[in-house]
Design a binder for these strands. Structure first.
Lengths: 199, 199
DNA sequence: TCCGAAGTTGGACACGGAGTCTAGAACTTG
DNA sequence: CAAGTTCTAGACTCCGTGTCCAACTTCGGA
């Protein structure tokens, strides 16, 4: 994959709509060419195939997530507050890159089989959040959990599923509403105090 | 799609491995034929195409989820306890149908575009759980949430993401561990009491 | 038992889309 | 302007999907 010039990168974003609605396999190379205004031959000049185009789009999303999460997780304030920011920041990426995010979620299988991407998503979100959970246990703002990585993964699932729902064409809830719902769900849990796990 | 005889249905499950590892598009009809022992012509006699075969597998998973959730959500005991059972039951489906579940998650986009399936998943999980949340608010075992459906969806995301992780070939955690993690995450939340949302 | 309908399969094939290739146009830079 | 590099049109190959058909088997009545 040759280095992709900005001009192309921008145009490529226009393909996200197609990919998010039809999925990669129902999208012909020619369709991508028409939608982006980049001729097929040029696409193949830069990418080795359709899959790599998709991968390029996905990287953009992961870059955004990584940056957003990293920024939100930094700071000296209580980990609980930072975690709240992480949730909001991640969901904001869905609002900013709705179509690529949707495409990523929908062609998740492809993403998983794309070499680096599954590692990337782990490193962009799971690791930092797991770290945050440990810090929170230390500063007393977060409950001490037994498996920070697994917990972070569950959190990621809650966020992405909710986020996808929020940016889906048929969606009613706004990102703001979803952020509120997810945050409350994640921070406070669902049980009333009396019904929490005894330990 | 003609009604599929049991003999075939059983054999078809053998295709789940392929689909879960390679995804539908990298799996040729001929591969499915070899893996299941069902000749290509016969496959086309029953299904209109590859996609419908995938759909058939997905339905099986959704059937299992629906049944498991329905059973777990029933009863007269506190909604909190029933919710715990629902989580465990759903994760158990991953353990029982690992490959089809994996395939479903990985080809999520296809599933979403498959007419009924997205509705089904809503009806199998989101609706019953949302109901459970309302009941819990009434019987005092669960916190009153503003948006039961959105909350249920977030919960679904947490479960499926964790479940997929648990049955992935490279996975370390067992379903039992994951169940424990998710349950504690969902019921108790992550914040310490002092750091819960003031209201 | 016999017949017709339905199920089952091999094998040939048309069709469409992915990706390759080549020649040359259009830029860029010295 | 010369010599590279980038970009593009268009023709072409290859391969997998899905179709078709002709034969063979199975099964449920009458």
């Amino acid at each position: 994959m040759r280095e992709v010039p900005d001009r192309l990168a921008t145009k490529l974003m226009l393909a996200a709509d197609l990919l998010a609605t039809q999925g990669l396999d129902d999208t012909k190379t020619e369709d991508i060419a028409t939608a982006t205004g980049i001729p097929k031959a040029t696409l193949y000049y830069y990418f080795s195939g359709k899959e790599e185009i998709l991968g390029f789009l996905f990287e953009r999303v992961l870059d955004a997530v990584e940056a957003a999460v990293a920024e939100a997780a930094a700071g000296d304030d209580p980990a609980a507050d930072r975690l709240r920011r992480v949730i909001a920041a991640h969901l904001l990426v869905f609002a900013e890159l709705p179509m690529p995010s949707l495409a990523l979620q929908l062609d998740l299988g492809r993403a998983a089989r794309l070499p680096d991407l599954s590692l990337r998503s782990r490193q962009s979100f799971v690791d930092p959040v797991a770290r945050l959970l440990s810090e929170g246990a230390r500063d007393g703002s977060l409950r001490k959990v037994k498996h920070p990585h697994l917990t972070a993964l569950a959190l990621l699932g809650a966020i992405t599923t909710s986020g996808v729902n929020a940016v889906s064409p048929s969606s009613t809830p706004s990102i703001a509403t979803v952020t509120e719902v997810v945050t409350s769900f994640v921070m406070d849990g669902l049980a009333t105090t009396a019904n929490r796990a005894r330990k």
